[in-house]
Design a protein around this nucleic acid. Structure first.
Length: 153
RNA sequence: GGAGCGGACCGGAUGAUCGCCGGCCGGCGGAUGCUGCGGCGUCAUAAGACGCCGCGAUGACGCUGGCGGGAGGAAAGUCCGGGCUCCGUAGGGUGCGAUGGUGGGUAACGCCCACCGGCCGCGAGGCCAGGGAAAGUGCCACAGAAAAUAGACCGCCUGCGGGGUUCGCCCCGCAGGUAAGGGUGAAACGGUGAGGUAAGAGCUCACCAGCAGGCCGGGUGACCGGUCUGGCUCGGUAAACCCCAUCGGGAGCAAGGCCAAGCAGGAAGAAGUUCGAUCCAGCCGUCGCCUCGGCACGGCUUGUUUCGGCACGAAACGGCCCGUUUCGUUACCCCCUUCCGGGUCGGCUGCUGGAGGCGCCGGGCAACCGGCGUCCUAGAGAAAUGGUCGUCACCCACGGGCCUUUGCCGGCCCGUGGGAACAAAACCCGGCUUACAGGUCCGCUCCAGUC
RNA sequence: CGCGGGGUGGAGCAGCCCGGUAGCUCGCGAGGCUCAUAACCUCGAUGUCGCAGGUUCGAAUCCUGUCCCCGCCA
């Protein structure tokens, strides 16, 4: 099991790494957007599990340096927020980057942290999300995990 | 001092703290499998419980501590070349593609070095797809008479006819000669001089330029120098087709190997029988043997087994042909081929020590090669090398002070504010190309000044 | 990783193979027709042919390099 949520570390277990994880999060279709970021959320299989993060930065954003800069900035911000226990447990998040400019410096880092907290709180607070969470935890509706994400075609 | 040419190199340093990736060394827990990890099933849900399978005392797994390591000169673009892996093998011709002075370097190259030739620059130097146009085909707009086996628009000359005349000749037409002169064009079929002619013309001659061939000398060679002969002169374009020479089998680490898990199969298909050998079977024969049913030997075949040859079909063989190899050829099944469909996309490995870096010596003009010594320097995988706060160094702007100067310029110090590029390994190397803040060093050229 | 296509007035496309004049439709501007608008008629303007270099007398076209956009395969 992963270590306690109060820890400041950011182990691999706190990351979304498999294509299936991403597909499940996108299939739930619960998102909020603010500025350059879009945050997708999905109830995890166990509600006590600490929050997990996945990143999606397309090549449209910039070259490899810019994309890596975004990912590091977001991982660091997520780590800080997670250490303060400011994120609701039992959720998986995927953050999609929409625009190119990376916020720099300490002020930029704080800004990103606030943005993540705000977006996560907004998505999780919705009534529809609570219903989805209940359905997932019941185990009666595990369809989003197996359903392919490209339904809009 | 100014302007410039060629080459080599650096790509911030350091500290605190919090993180990430992988390596090594520990500590604690840890089973006659009830406690760990992975998977499956059932039940349930807040973490879970139970069962089964596999792994784990060579220590799995969890927690935790320490040590040392962690992007580039282009890691980039993916434009070439190789290693490596698989395609059972990597053959000949043709096609296709690439390359294109010569010699060398190299694992190899479209790369590098040296040299040759051409062009540019006062020079240091720079650039060049730089084989063949007398093997063939095509094209050369507009202008111009004519644009490629040359060609008569004006002009010049001769002859004939007509007309005019100041009797010198002039004008018009026709036929012919002529490439000297005109003008066009990117390009007009050698140049100068003399002879020659009705006028002219390489028509002839001398010299020069250029072409082809022979010989001599130098060089490994590209080529250079000299000499003789020839026809007297030959347009450009091959980054137009083409010819010649050389090279190239295909795919790519998502290659390939192992483990786990999972699923579902279906449809269609062409081509043989003649010959040789052989096994079995049957029939016939034999002054053969004998326990009278067989054995032995020989021959035959509408049969039959296997092999070979030939023929046909398919594949290896992703252009085609030949050749080679494999499989198949009465029907069904199997096999083979083609088409459609289904499942997986998890883990381990390949995975980093190599055509490797540095130093010295030797060979070579050099690229590079050889020897010796020494060093170990990233291995991620939704993809690690980062965040924050300082200090120092660098650059820019502004302000102030000092030095220098007639002044501008310039130099040093302090303060404030800002900036700090291009860009991140993805199997590994050798190159090429492109991007790049700022800076360092070496060699050389030209111009000006001083001694 | 491997491969293919494209970049031409404001928009969408021809022209490129086989070099010499950049054209079509819509749009835009002016004028006409109409009481007026649309439609229609006449006229007109607008092009570094993505960029750089080369071959050629001459390049949108041929060659090389480079930048950007779109797509395909596993």
């Amino acid at each position: 099991m992963a270590r306690a949520a109060g820890s400041a570390g950011f182990p691999r277990a706190a990351r979304l790494l498999l294509p299936g994880d991403f597909a499940r999060v996108f299939a739930v279709r619960r998102s909020a957007a603010s500025g350059p970021l879009v945050l997708y959320a999905c109830p995890a299989l166990s509600a006590a599990q600490p929050a997990r993060l996945g990143l999606s930065v397309s090549s449209r954003i910039g070259n490899a340096v810019v994309r890596n800069r975004w990912k590091r900035r977001l991982r660091e911000a997520f780590r800080q927020v997670r250490a303060r226990a400011a994120l609701p447990h039992g959720n998986d998040f995927v953050i999609v980057v929409r625009s190119g400019a990376v916020p720099a410096g300490a002020a930029g880092a704080r800004q990103v942290e606030e943005m993540i907290c705000d977006l996560a709180a907004r998505v999780v607070a919705r009534p529809a999300y609570a219903a989805a969470a209940a359905a997932t935890r019941q185990g009666t509706a595990p369809q989003p995990t197996t359903e392919p994400p490209r339904r809009r075609r």
